[in-house]
């Protein structure tokens, strides 16, 4: 069992600046405990996705950007020189808003990360394929056509494939950046339902599609505005009884 007392991820005074000095995130301090769905919500341009991208250092790709403060995964600084960024991204895996299967078969998609990490054992790969598809609630739909192109799947299936593709790496943290943005209500429900099962094995940090979705799936939530963390706490307190006026006006739909 993971130690419930220690945060999975902790941020201390994290500030993220673009090359032109604008601050996308200002002094964020936040602890995220393991095995829960942690939701980052707020209006667009509030810094949610930027924060998500920092956690597996996809932010490294933004040229000229600067990070200050400290982000730790299991207590270890993710920006320390000892951390190999490819390995970090296998431990903290991202699913993007637009479902993006890689060209190739379903099987190739699911094993991509493992193969890049040097895995070759066919038995292990097969096992991971099945495991991750079951976890992402896609196994029954695709088990007979693993060698078909991933591009031929429907949008909802593609997104669950992308989730499965991350899960195949057996990450510790799953980052979901608005994973239901392009999906119909039924597919959205399937993805949301799978989160209850997934959080038993993973820590999930998610930028939701809407406040309603945030309220449905969150264990804890953080409200962000203009790059700042306004407040965070257990779901019921944030959505029913928020401390800050701005959180309240946002969750009740008075601005957004």
């Amino acid at each position: 069992m993971p130690e419930q007392n220690h945060p999975k991820i902790s941020l201390l005074d994290v500030t993220f600046r673009y090359a032109d000095e604008t601050e996308a995130l200002r002094k964020i301090t936040l602890d995220i405990a393991p095995n829960q769905v942690y939701v980052l919500f707020g209006p667009s341009r509030s810094g949610k996705s930027t924060l998500l991208r920092l956690l597996n250092r996809l932010s490294d790709l933004t040229e000229g950007a600067q990070v200050s403060g400290r982000i730790a995964l299991n207590g270890q600084d993710i920006f320390s020189p000892a951390v190999r960024v490819a390995a970090l991204r296998r431990r903290v895996s991202m699913v993007f808003a637009i479902p993006t299967p890689l060209p190739g078969s379903i099987r190739e998609n699911l094993t991509y990360g493992l193969r890049m990490a040097g895995a070759t054992d066919p038995l292990m790969l097969e096992e991971r394929i099945q495991q991750s598809l079951v976890q992402a609630a896609l196994w029954d739909e695709v088990k007979d056509r693993l060698d078909h192109s991933a591009m031929a799947l429907s949008g909802g299936q593609q997104q669950r494939l992308c989730i499965a593709r991350s899960l195949a790496l057996q990450p510790e943290v799953l980052l979901l950046d608005n994973p239901t943005s392009g999906l119909d209500p039924l597919s959205t429900a399937t993805v949301e339902d799978s989160l209850y099962e997934l959080k038993r094995s993973y820590t999930i940090i998610m930028v939701p599609h809407s406040v309603q979705q945030a309220g449905r799936v969150a264990d804890r939530a953080a409200f962000m505005l203009d790059g700042e963390l306004i407040e965070e706490g257990p779901r019921d307190r944030i959505f029913i009884n928020p401390t800050h006026e701005r959180t309240e006006s946002y969750v009740t739909g008075r601005f957004g």
Partner: peptide, 25 residues
């Protein structure tokens, strides 16, 4: 660009991303 992002986010290095995603495509 999104194929590069996906490949990198699955733990591929930049060189692997070029070799396995960018060049074939």
């Amino acid at each position: 660009q999104r194929f590069r992002m996906v490949s990198l986010s699955l733990g591929a290095t930049k060189l692997q991303t070029i070799r396995h995603q960018v060049l074939p495509q």
